[in-house]
């Protein structure tokens, strides 16, 4: 097990370094150099040179990268071009909101996906099975952000039950308010992701039900319910864990459009705004943060996987 995990850890480190290089190099791919972008096109040469020195852009390529990554590791991702605030500060401001939305969305996703996946896999021809299959098809076809718009039109504009824009209400301060504020974007996200997860679970459960060891369990006289509970679900959950991990990763930086729809103050919205304002320091820092979080999450999924599957744990 340790060999496996250490190898994964090493891969994680390699990708993280590659990622940081890519994120850092991204500013070079932009039209014009950062100093010009920062100061505008009518800045003088000396002003530009001073700014370059300040941004650490006057050394060799390797030096520049090392100085940048050194600062980044120390928690210094530079200052936002636009607000002048430290990038780390800007990010930290948005992270609670993002985590809260991700938590809501993932909880809903699992609450819907697991029962739906099981019913669809085991009773595909029953009434419930057909209805839920319809839900899966619809959930996959409806774009998240349009569903968000629809929810706003119906629940906020027409019925006026819920606010159209979602502010961040921390759950530890006002649980009820947090639910009201976060429920609409969370539902909009979860309808899609739960369909993805449920379909995935249904497929692997369907495959597992055809395995020899399921037949063995039946031949032992195990009642069908226990065959599913004790033998099928654990095996079928293995590939599903991977998908859920990927989804959680995408919640932490990829809900850009849904945050735009609901004006929700999360990381995605911050990055989108930063891109619009050409605030590249913020974009750079934000993307680095998203990439690192995603990779870390994947590492955790690997650990979890090893716990679930003795074949990985014990070799």
């Amino acid at each position: 097990m340790y060999g496996h995990l250490v190898r994964r850890l090493l891969q994680f480190a390699v990708v993280l370094v590659l990622g940081s290089i890519a994120v850092w190099a991204f500013t070079f791919a932009l039209p014009g150099d950062p100093a010009t972008v920062l100061l505008g096109s009518d800045a003088s040469e000396s002003e530009l040179a001073a700014t370059r020195a300040r941004l650490g852009l006057d050394g060799s390529i390797v030096q520049q990268y090392l100085s940048w990554i050194g600062h980044a590791v120390g928690g210094d991702l530079g200052a936002s071009y636009y607000s002048g605030q430290p990038v780390v500060r800007e990010l930290l401001d948005r992270i609670p909101a993002t985590i809260q939305l991700a938590g809501f969305a993932m909880t809903l996703t699992l609450l819907i996906a697991v029962p739906v996946g099981i019913v669809v896999a085991l009773r595909p021809h029953s009434v419930a099975g057909r209805v839920l299959q319809g839900y899966l098809t619809a959930g996959l076809a409806v774009p998240t952000f349009w569903l968000g718009l629809l929810l706003i039109i119906v629940l906020a504009v027409q019925l006026q039950w819920l606010p159209a824009a979602s502010d961040f209400v921390p759950i530890w301060r006002d649980p009820a308010g947090a639910v009201t504020a976060t429920i609409l974007p969370a539902v909009a996200i979860a309808v899609h992701t739960s369909s993805v997860t449920a379909r995935f679970l249904a497929t692997s459960l369907g495959e597992v039900m055809g395995k020899d060891y399921i037949r063995t369990a039946r031949a032992k006289g195990v009642p069908e319910r226990d065959v599913i509970r004790r033998h099928a679900l654990r095996n079928a959950s293995l590939p599903t864990v991977t998908i859920v991990g990927l989804q959680l990763g995408s919640f932490l930086g990829g809900t850009v459009v849904i945050e735009a729809v609901f004006n929700y103050p999360g990381l995605g919205r911050l990055l989108y705004t930063a891109i619009g304002e050409r605030d590249y320091a913020l974009v750079q820092g934000g993307v680095l943060f998203v990439v690192a979080t995603f990779l870390l999450l994947n590492l955790l999924v690997d650990v979890f996987y090893a716990v679930l599957d003795p074949r990985i744990r014990l070799t």
């Binding site: 395995k211 020899d212 654990r234």
Partner: peptide, 20 residues
């Protein structure tokens, strides 16, 4: 099944649950 009549299958490795 398993009490009055029991079965032994061909491919024993895949006939056993890998995670139990």
């Amino acid at each position: 099944l398993g009490r009055d009549v029991a079965m032994i299958f061909q491919d024993a490795i895949s006939a056993l649950n890998p995670v139990q």
